[in-house]
Design a protein around this nucleic acid. Structure first.
Length: 414
DNA sequence: GTGTCGCGCCTATCCACAAGTTTCG
DNA sequence: TGCGAAACTTGTGGATAGGCGCGAC
């Protein structure tokens, strides 16, 4: 995923469809999602203007930029100055909206400061919608919208319901702090953890080598993608890890390659003099995993300790309600967040009792049963067809033949 | 210690057909 | 060399059979 539309490969991508896991230009978005009734139901959103790989969920009024959860966190969640930026949640949409309808929910869409060269903006005005653009296709967003179609982030309850994450810091009603749009907000505070997002074009210039010196691994890429290099072990089997107490196994002896490979967690850490790392920021290439990580209501704590001659990392700060099951979409994250390592008693924030943990393990196992690893769909049109094809015992049937499963009507022909 | 059974998990396979690719005249 | 038609290949999702590991007996 990148700047170019995944479908036509020519236009600049502007919207992201999670169902298709594709970044599309407005023209292709409309073409693809007008194919059938199911594809019309795909929920789409603006593409993050910073990493260009994740759906944007927030628009920063100060920077005039749309951000995904991850980039929003990087830019606003950890910076005291940037966290005061006034942000609005960005509504998703489905169906085949007209240009006017799009601009009605995204009042800012025609005013992107950094995408002026894209032809997609022009398409907004040029698109002609032949079919009915019924308003009922817009009913997905349950958040009350203001006139511009955006929602004030202040309403935390509503945001939580919508699954939209925002930074842990308070968000003021307004902000007058100046900000340079060309400069990532996350870098404004030089005391902040430095982070590089390997699977993205995240341009956040985390360059503080001192942090890495604290870890004694300044040459390393602090992402779980390179955990083997980082910790000298391979990681596998999240469930085993869970049952064995989690983090100790994770960074000690267990192999984790079986976990979702598309879930990478880049760790940003603020190291104190006692070796307590105070923040962990997931920089997942997977939207769902980012969601699950960031929907955590508490700020995770990363503990760095020395044990038996090698460094160990632990995570706590997970509240009771956000169980591992809630994070299973990101295999690593569930592991990282579940365990309360017995060897890390110095993390007083850890609220896990054994009962809670057992409960969490149970829910995790239950959800894992129904788990489906995300699959990269290369051709959205073929997927759209397959989604509506009738089947007999899971097999496609000829058109007109008897079927026992119809994805559209869930009915049988016999 | 060895063999058998049941259970759960994982993976390959099947199907039709539109779309993409290659071959041939 | 370029074009069009024909032949061939690819990819898509849900259900299911079969293989495998593990624990109990």
């Amino acid at each position: 995923m990148g700047y170019v539309c995944d479908f036509c490969g020519e236009q600049r991508s502007m919207v992201y469809c999670r169902s298709d896991a594709a970044s599309l230009c407005l023209s292709c978005d409309r073409n693809v999602h007008s194919a059938n009734a199911l594809s019309k139901r795909h929920s789409r959103n603006l593409l993050c203007e910073r990493c260009n790989s994740q759906p944007a969920i927030v628009r920063c009024a100060e920077e005039r930029i749309s951000l995904c959860q991850n980039c929003d966190w990087i830019g606003h969640g950890t910076s005291t100055s940037a966290s005061t930026h006034r942000r609005q949640t960005i509504s998703c949409y489905s169906g085949c909206p007209s240009a006017s309808e799009l601009s009605s929910i995204w009042s800012f869409v025609l005013d992107f400061p950094s995408r002026g060269e894209s032809t997609c903006e022009q398409e907004l005005g040029l698109m002609s919608i032949a079919e009915n653009s019924t308003t009922n296709s817009w009913g997905e967003n349950t958040i009350d919208q203001n006139a511009s179609g955006a929602v004030e982030v202040n309403d935390r309850n509503e945001i939580a319901k919508s699954g939209v994450w925002h930074g842990s810091s308070s968000i003021p009603e307004s902000s007058s702090l100046p900000n340079n749009p060309d400069q990532p907000t996350g870098s404004a505070n030089t005391s902040l953890p430095k982070l590089y997002c390997p699977g993205t074009k995240c341009p956040v210039p985390y360059d503080d080598a001192n942090l890495y010196e604290e870890f004694n691994m300044d040459e390393m890429d602090l992402s779980l993608e390179n955990y083997e290099e980082l910790f000298g072990v391979t990681l596998n089997n999240s469930e085993e890890l869970l049952e064995n107490g989690g983090i100790d196994s994770l960074f000690g002896t267990k192999d984790m390659s079986g976990a979702d490979s598309n879930c990478q967690g880049a760790v940003a850490a603020e190291v104190s003099s006692v070796g307590l790392v105070n923040a962990i920021q997931p920089a997942s290439s997977n939207a769902a995993s980012a969601d699950s990580m960031m929907s955590n209501k508490t700020e995770p704590i990363l503990c760095l300790t020395e044990k038996q001659g090698h460094s160990n990392l632990s995570f706590s700060g997970l509240n009771v309600e956000s169980s591992a099951a809630d994070y299973q979409d990101c295999g690593a994250s569930s592991m990282l967040l579940m365990g309360e390592p017995p060897w890390c008693p110095q993390c007083p924030e850890s609220p896990f009792s054994s009962a809670n943990r057992s409960d969490a393990v149970m829910r995790y196992k239950e959800k894992k049963k129904t788990r489906k690893f995300e699959k990269k769909v290369r051709y959205a049109s073929r997927k759209a067809r397959a989604d509506v094809r009738r089947r007999v015992k899971g097999r496609f049937v000829k058109a007109g033949d008897a079927y026992d499963y119809d994805p559209l009507s869930q009915t049988r022909s016999f």
